[in-house]
Nucleic acid binder design. Structure first.
Lengths: 228, 228
DNA sequence: CGGTATCCCCCGCGATACTG
DNA sequence: CAGTATCGCGGGGGATACCG
């Protein structure tokens, strides 16, 4: 595995570890703050456990990830080292390029539970009323039992439920996965999608009017859109 | 092949094309100005012809590369599109990170002909005397018949020869591959390596003293070295 | 020079089952 | 929850030969 490319060019040496399947996505999750094995997996659901462990070991060998154990015999925690945090520049460059130039979104990319997982990290709970706020999401195109999600928000925490949390819903959002995904990516305007009914927001009017302020979008929306 | 990762995240979509074996190295060559098939191959010698063609096709499908034909029935030329030139940000981020954090150089990375190919792109011919200047390189550790190279420089052109070009050598450089590679990478200082004899520079003293000015090093030398 | 065509091998990776 | 063990296959990709 060493000297895969037969070059001492820094791009080649970096590619040996970074340019592998899933690798950048694992780093993305760690950079987003995930530390536990299954926490990482939620952000990269289609990776197998075997392969995720293998990738984490490779990252550790490369000095990008450090393993810590909270309690003896407890599960490991994975954190980025200094070398790992500096990969933020790479993630940013790749994501910015992808936002602008990557292929169109296909239906198989549209996993509502991944969308929800991504969104829950970008809820601005500081803009919410004091106490608890519950937001319900209903994705009309998704199969039953995988189409309903609840965000239970209590500053600064956002928990995801896949069953009714038992608290009253303050705001309820109904739309299809593609619409919400495109809004999340910044390809489609949120407020306009609400006003034209592609996204229905229900709830007390004082709250539902606030919803767009709570939802920060993907960190890459600011990347300039492609021409033509 | 579509939706390899099941996510519409721009990093995932970009990874589908970029995070494949050899891909970034091919883009690096195109970014460095290579346009012809075998010109690219000289910068990525260990890729097979089959696979290089496959990668170029994938880049074309992704809108990163455009194929042009100079004459009908002539060979293709490959050039970066707008989307392709914007990958410079990715190359820069990966290279900068790699310069700082990638693994140490191993012996199998040390291909003298690749080193020479990399160097010949970074010769500052504008600093040379008018007319022709010939620089000879002798890598003492490399196998015979693959250890001698000549740069025939005539502003702004630098041609590589693997046989004596028939012109008198103005400057002759003798060293081992690792030393020259480390100098190229900015890990080892050039002038000090000359003064301590690890790199021997021969020729008329007016010219040999100029040699360090001619040799611009890797574009990534300016990346801050790692701590520890 | 700039590719294709073919063969074939290996191993990357997914799936499943099992464990502390 | 956080992995490990095992199996099996598909295809990525290396090697070689061939071609216009």
């Amino acid at each position: 595995m060493t000297s895969q490319f037969g070059q001492f060019c820094p791009i080649a040496l970096a590619s040996e570890v970074l340019a592998q399947k899933w690798m950048l996505l694992v780093v993305r999750e760690l950079n987003a703050g995930a530390t536990r094995f299954n926490e990482i997996r939620r952000g990269v659901p289609r990776i197998s456990a075997t392969l995720l462990k293998q990738r984490l070991t490779q990252l550790e060998d490369a000095g990008i990830v450090a393993r810590r154990w909270v309690q003896p015999d407890g599960p490991d925690e994975y954190v980025l080292t200094k070398a790992g945090t500096e990969l933020k520049q790479v993630l940013s460059a790749v994501g910015t390029w992808g936002q602008r130039w990557a292929r169109k979104i296909e239906n198989d990319d549209l996993d509502p539970s991944w969308l929800v997982w991504a969104m829950h990290r970008r809820i601005d709970t500081s803009m919410m009323p004091n106490g608890r706020t519950v937001i319900a999401f209903h994705f009309t195109d998704a199969p039953r039992n995988h189409n309903l999600f609840w965000f239970v928000c209590k500053h600064p925490q956002v928990d995801i439920c896949v069953k009714p949390p038992g608290f009253e819903e303050d705001v309820s959002v109904v739309t299809d996965t593609r619409t919400m995904a495109e809004v999340w990516r910044g390809i489609r305007p949120l407020r306009q999608s609400i006003s034209n009914g592609r996204i229905q927001v229900k709830g007390r009017s004082a709250l539902q009017r606030k919803f767009p302020e709570w939802l920060m979008l993907s960190v890459f929306v600011s990347a300039k859109q492609r021409p033509n």
